[in-house]
């Protein structure tokens, strides 16, 4: 039969394979080379230089700080986002008129660009802004080292929480009702039902959301560009922020090394996380 002919499938996948190969895989492989190459705007020739870029970044006290900031940012962002979204999902799980209105309202921030979200919260959190005058304090949320990173991560979480809430609702609704009913009959209270039935069965949605928010936040840039630009000092100077600065100054090799560091962090985070959460899913 025509449909079972093996070779005939290739043309259908070929355009996608070519595009992904040229515009994703090739840059990915080139990055491994550039990260360990001398390549600047002052000398167009690209030559292998081993760990020179990494050494320079360490000597300038850029690398360790950027890695710490990026990892902290990702963890904060993931924690805030999943706490808010899971709570909202539990409250809005049932599909009803009023719940749809709330779901719709909480989805709105997702439509706003992270850059615009940065400007909005920078306005709200200004020292003489609305939030401080409501709280009766005068605090430069984005200007103080102790709060800047948390606030920036919060803004990123705020922007994405609407979408993540919907994924959690989808996960909650895929839990068989009969299971919850029988747990209720057996005398399990709401908290026990959540801990023993809902939470383990929510594993696919949880896996997805935790992985997506962590991995996404490791590439943080937009919100920081709109709010702190990396400051105060270097307290919010994540890897991509340093990468952009290095790129702007013409240090293309160092910029590649920073990009490659993000990739390594993503691999180090995602692989064990997906593996561990998948195992929990099965045994959970």
């Amino acid at each position: 039969m025509v449909m079972r002919n093996r070779a005939a499938w290739l043309p259908w996948a070929l355009p996608a394979i070519v595009l992904v190969t040229v515009f994703f895989v090739a840059p990915f492989l080139l990055n491994v080379r550039f990260a360990f190459s001398s390549w600047t705007s002052f000398r167009a020739e690209i030559t292998w230089n081993g760990l020179e870029n990494v050494r320079t970044l360490i000597d300038q006290d850029l690398l360790a700080n950027a890695v710490t900031v990026t990892v902290l940012y990702a963890i904060l962002c993931m924690a805030i986002q999943n706490t808010v979204s899971l709570s909202l999902a539990l409250a809005l799980q049932r599909t009803s008129g009023i719940n749809t209105v709330f779901r719709s309202a909480f989805f709105l921030p997702t439509l706003i660009s992270p850059l615009a979200a940065g400007y909005i919260w920078r306005g709200l959190l200004a020292p003489d802004g609305a939030i401080n005058s409501f709280l009766g304090v005068e605090w430069a949320w984005l200007g103080e080292p102790s709060t800047a990173l948390v606030v920036v991560a919060f803004i990123d979480a705020w922007k994405w929480s609407g979408l993540i809430t919907l994924v959690y609702i989808a996960g909650l609704n895929s839990i068989p009702k009969s299971l919850l009913e029988s747990a209720k009959v057996d005398g399990a209270g709401p908290w026990t039902r959540f801990r023993r039935v809902v939470f383990p069965l929510l594993a696919p949605a949880l896996t997805f959301n935790v992985a997506v928010t962590l991995v996404g936040a490791l590439s943080a840039y937009d919100v920081i560009a709109a709010t702190t630009g990396g400051g105060p000092g270097d307290h919010t100077r994540a890897l991509n922020v340093v990468m952009r600065q290095q790129w702007g100054q013409g240090f293309f090799g160092s910029a590649s090394a920073l990009g490659f560091t993000v990739t390594l962090l993503v691999i180090a985070t995602a692989v064990p996380l997906v593996w561990w959460l998948r195992r929990r899913e099965v045994t959970g």
Partner: peptide, 10 residues
């Protein structure tokens, strides 16, 4: 994550 610097080069 996509590798942005080599993409510019490419």
């Amino acid at each position: 994550p996509p590798s942005i610097i080599p993409t510019v080069y490419l």
